[in-house]
């Protein structure tokens, strides 16, 4: 039972890292980016290529996946996304669906449509007993890593100069610009970091949930749930939503396999009905 809970928490943490970039672009900047999963997939494939073709060890791949996806994100933000911030939601939806389609076909073309396998090193594969509960070392690593990143993000957003500039830029880009904040630069950096984290999440998750070209579509809903259910008040909401989702999903799959996915969809719709702004909304003012 506790093992299920533990796996669920690990999964939730992973979802949070995957989705926290989206929490900023969609939650704070109000940009409907359905293509967030494409960046996560990019991170996963960077890891696969580095490990299989160049023999880079797994742990060294993680920062590289982050950097590569962050660069990709920065490039995409500058060339494409920046033009769409002020467009209607329909335009943003169409645009990002287009990106998803392109990324799926491109990866299919370059890497093939089969499931990719990421070999994690032997010392991460075992299980250890903590307080009588058997837990996977790899999942422990994920929880630790994601926990640290979460604290780091929360600190960066809440207490650094950059964080307050970002919040100002999101709340009112014009006023922020008037105060001498380089809004464009802030958004690039934010988008790049968000994409990079998604890439890192993609690299970490390849072992757990698998990696194939349909990844962006399969997990699109999960990311969106994390953000919409979590609300837009900051990172705490999405984090709790991700944990809730992770535990529900894993527990559902273990305990009532016949119902698995239904629970999530129903819970999501119910929550959105009761609280359209998400569980942890900023005041409506």
């Amino acid at each position: 039972m506790l093992t299920i809970l533990f796996d669920g928490v690990a999964y939730g943490m992973l979802l949070f890292i995957l989705a926290c970039g989206l929490a900023v672009t969609l939650g704070l900047m109000n940009f409907v980016n359905l293509a967030h999963g494409a960046f996560a997939m990019a991170g996963g494939y960077v890891t696969v290529v580095l490990m299989q073709r160049f023999g880079v060890p797994f742990l060294a791949c993680l920062p590289l996946a982050f950097v590569a996806t962050a660069l990709l994100g920065a490039l995409a933000e500058r060339t494409l996304y920046a033009r769409l911030y002020s467009r209607s939601h329909l335009d943003q939806v169409l645009f990002s669906i287009g990106i998803v389609f392109m990324s799926i076909a491109a990866v299919d073309f370059l890497m093939g449509s089969q499931q990719q396998i990421v070999q994690i090193p032997a010392f991460l594969r075992g299980r250890v007993e903590i307080l009588g509960v058997g837990v996977g070392v790899y999942r422990l690593l994920i929880i630790g890593l994601c926990g640290v990143l979460t604290l780091l993000l929360q600190w960066a957003l809440a207490s650094t100069r950059f964080g307050s500039q970002l919040r100002a830029a999101v709340d009112d880009a014009r006023a922020a610009r008037g105060l001498g904040i380089e809004v464009g630069r802030i958004f690039v950096v934010t988008f790049a970091v968000g994409s990079g984290l998604a890439g890192l999440g993609g690299a970490l998750s390849a072992e757990i949930v698998g990696l194939d070209p349909t990844f962006p579509l399969k997990f699109m809903l999960y990311f969106l749930i994390v953000v919409t259910v979590g609300g837009t008040s900051g990172l705490t909401g999405p984090l709790l939503a991700a944990l809730l989702l992770g535990v529900t999903d894993v527990a559902g799959k273990y305990l009532v396999p016949g119902l698995g996915a239904f629970i999530i969809y129903f819970v999501m719709i119910a929550i959105l009905m009761l609280r359209p702004q998400g569980l942890f909304a900023r005041g409506s003012a």
Binding site: G98, F101, A105, D108
Partner: peptide, 20 residues
């Protein structure tokens, strides 16, 4: 045959960027 999805995606992106 296998990659028409790519061109469809490209078409969407261009359509939005040009302004539908």
């Amino acid at each position: 045959p296998a990659y028409w999805l790519f061109w469809m995606g490209l078409f969407l992106v261009v359509l939005v960027l040009v302004g539908r």
